[in-house]
Design a protein around this nucleic acid. Structure first.
Lengths: 138, 138
DNA sequence: CGCCACATTGGACTTTGTCCAAGTAAGGGG
DNA sequence: CCCCTTACTTGGACAAAGTCCAATGTGGCG
């Protein structure tokens, strides 16, 4: 995990207590947190950290490609610390749980030139929806 | 398009001027409007219609399965009147515009049993991201 | 054609996120 | 080791999208 801090320093990040805390929160959680959840956990380690800083830092981590933004439901964005292994998401339609999955195939290759309408397509996101074992049992 | 109104009446909808207007707006547009855009167009036809009614009506259309909600990011939800033909979306990262696309391949088939974690997977949503010709030019 | 359950309204409220001017501190140069 | 520059942080105001609610209106059954 100090890998992450190393990489960030290498990219010219000024290393502040606030950024360290946000990075630690993301690195410690292997779930997908909302910005407010990140803020809540960050406050537990550094009480005076502000909401604006958490938003800024998350935004920077996203543009550096260290963290992914995921909008699976219509509520808050979630932040996915697992940016270095490409993957997609499996979402439970009942309880909202999210799992990472690694399907075969490459959906980008499945979009022919004739279906790109002049867009410069750079990325694809796949969201599988279903019912998780817990909810199916209940 | 009166198909839509017929189906809705058949499902016990009380047919009000407001609902008719919202249905007409959606039916007339083959793009994906935000709730506010639907409201703006509805006001043009029925000046006293309220925002709350547009939100209510869109919500009802979604739960009846006549319209799809598309949440591509944390901007406004968009409403996709084309609920009866399966397709995926191409989203502009800058301006949020959405196009329907029909890629090859079947992503559901690309998710092996070992990656389903006991979920009953029923649906898959694919979102391609890029920059549209307009935004690329600007 | 009258009634009442269902619809509509507008405004207050909530949630999520952005912006900004002023204060603070990281870390390289001396 | 200290200072200076400059990037970073802060809190509060603001904005956008959506929800809620009590009062009012009305579609359409009987």
């Amino acid at each position: 995990m100090s890998d992450l801090l190393e990489r960030l320093r290498g990219r010219g990040w000024r290393m502040t207590a606030q950024r360290r805390v946000v990075a630690e929160v993301l690195d410690g959680e292997h779930v997908h947190l909302t910005a407010d959840e990140v803020h809540a956990r960050a406050v537990a380690k550094l009480p005076e950290i502000s909401r604006a800083t958490v938003y800024n830092t998350l935004g920077e981590l996203v543009s550096l490609g260290e963290v992914l933004e995921v909008a699976t439901d219509k509520r808050a964005k979630r932040y996915d610390p697992n940016a270095h292994r490409p993957h997609h998401h499996l979402v439970c339609a009942r309880c909202g749980a999210i799992r990472d999955v690694h399907p075969d195939g490459n959906p980008l290759a499945d979009l022919p030139e004739s279906e790109r309408f002049g867009f410069m397509v750079s990325d694809v996101e796949v969201t599988y929806r279903g019912v998780c074992p817990n909810c199916a049992a209940a």
